Simulated scan of single mutants.
Amino acid sequence: MAVEVVLGEVTCPSGQLVIMDGGYLELWSGDRVPDDEERPATDFAIVGPDAEAAADSFDRQTGTRLYDIPAHAVAEFTATFEEHCREHGYGATLHAFEQQVPHRERVRHAVAAREPGFIVMGVPVLPIEVPADRPLHVTAVPGEYGWKSMRIEFSDAPVADSWVFGELGVDHARFVFADADALSSWEHVRPLDGLADLVLWGRDQEQVAAEFGAPRLGDTADVAYGWVDLPITEAYQRGLAIETRRNEPGGPKFAFDFRPHSHHWQVMGLVRASEHEAGVIQVGGADILMAMTSVGDGFFPVHLDVDADGLPVALRIDIARED
């Protein structure tokens, strides 16, 4: 039997935990109203005596709220919902919010309504009420091809049953476990010290490094060449030049990464240096954990383990299913 590996501990002073693809935290608005000029959208509430039945059968999102409907699709989306209600005889309508619902408020609503999740621009977010008075252990079970599962524990009570809780879609090969209030302080891209790293690697890394004068990095770095601690503007301009070189037809084959000194950069530095590809940093008075899936991107079923009284014991993410 495989032995659980401890990845770290999470603290959640607000009592409301968020689990999602950590690479998408750039989208997180916290207590602010989401404001994306390039992708304007509208949020709706389904209201009326048959709101829940209409929401369940319409089956676009979880619960009676529909978030991030693209502005260009609102008219068609509304008409489709109205036709659905007429067809099934539901007394329900869509009520548009005056402004989009902040992501922190989406967490509060989902927890209060006992809804297992919501979306942020199509990205699944799983919020859950957890103990606020103690650290929460995050562990993983090794499998043949990576982690078999990952688990965050809320109680040491014996598990009596397990329920399907939801599903996490991941495009950046990483999970984040974070306090919902703390995420309002998260800086995903903006450098905390005004600096950034620019690194490169790949088949033709020596050639590109020579062309651009990129120094060789130390043995402790996760890549061979690049610049560290550059002023953010200089790093960005160099990155544009390197991107142009990479995109030239018949040009050298290599990859590069622009790494502003943000919270994301801090925790990913710990992840890269960790034997188990997990790291913990403190943000907004809470310990936040980032952990790689070990199997890349995908959709991962999530189960809620409960005790004999139906109270939550742990949340478990199934990762690598083995035959």
Rank of each mutant, 00 (worst) to 15 (best):
F58I: 00
E37T: 11
R134F: 10
P40V: 00
D50S: 14
I46Q: 07
H84R: 00
T64H: 04
A55Y: 12
H137D: 05
M121F: 11
H109K: 07
Y90K: 01
C85Y: 03
Y90M: 08
V138T: 10
V33D: 10
Y67E: 15
A132D: 03
V138C: 09
D133Y: 08
R134E: 08
H95R: 02
A79G: 15
V107Q: 12
C85M: 08
A51P: 00
D50P: 00
H103M: 02
A92M: 13
G122A: 05
F44R: 01
R134M: 13
C85Q: 04
P34K: 00
H109C: 08
G63A: 12
V107K: 07
F81T: 10
G63W: 09
E83Q: 12
R114G: 14
T64W: 13
H72L: 10
A71D: 07
V130L: 09
S29N: 09
E26S: 11
F44T: 07
H109R: 09
G30P: 05
D35T: 02
G91N: 03
E83W: 04
G91Q: 07
V74R: 03
Y90G: 03
E105Y: 00
A53E: 05
G48V: 11
A92L: 14
P40E: 00
V47S: 02
A51T: 10
A53Q: 04
S29G: 15
R32H: 12
Y67W: 11
V123Y: 02
G63Y: 10
H95K: 03
G22R: 05
R108K: 04
T139L: 13
A41S: 14
G89T: 10
E82R: 04
D35Q: 02
V101Y: 00
T139W: 04
R104T: 11
H72A: 09
T93H: 03
F97I: 05
A73V: 12
E38D: 12
V123I: 13
A73E: 08
D50A: 15
A51G: 02
V123P: 01
F118D: 14
G117H: 00
A96F: 09
F97V: 01
P135G: 11
D50K: 10
A71V: 14
A140S: 01
G89K: 06
S29P: 14
P124L: 05
V33H: 06
T64I: 15
I69H: 08
A75V: 14
V125A: 11
T42K: 06
L66P: 15
P49F: 15
L27R: 11
E52S: 13
L27S: 13
R32Q: 13
D56C: 06
E37G: 04
A55K: 07
A53M: 06
A54E: 05
L94I: 01
D36V: 10
I119G: 09
Y90Q: 03
E129V: 07
L136N: 07
G63D: 10
G122W: 04
L136Y: 11
A140M: 03
F77S: 08
P70L: 10
P102H: 02
E87Y: 08
T64Q: 11
D35M: 03
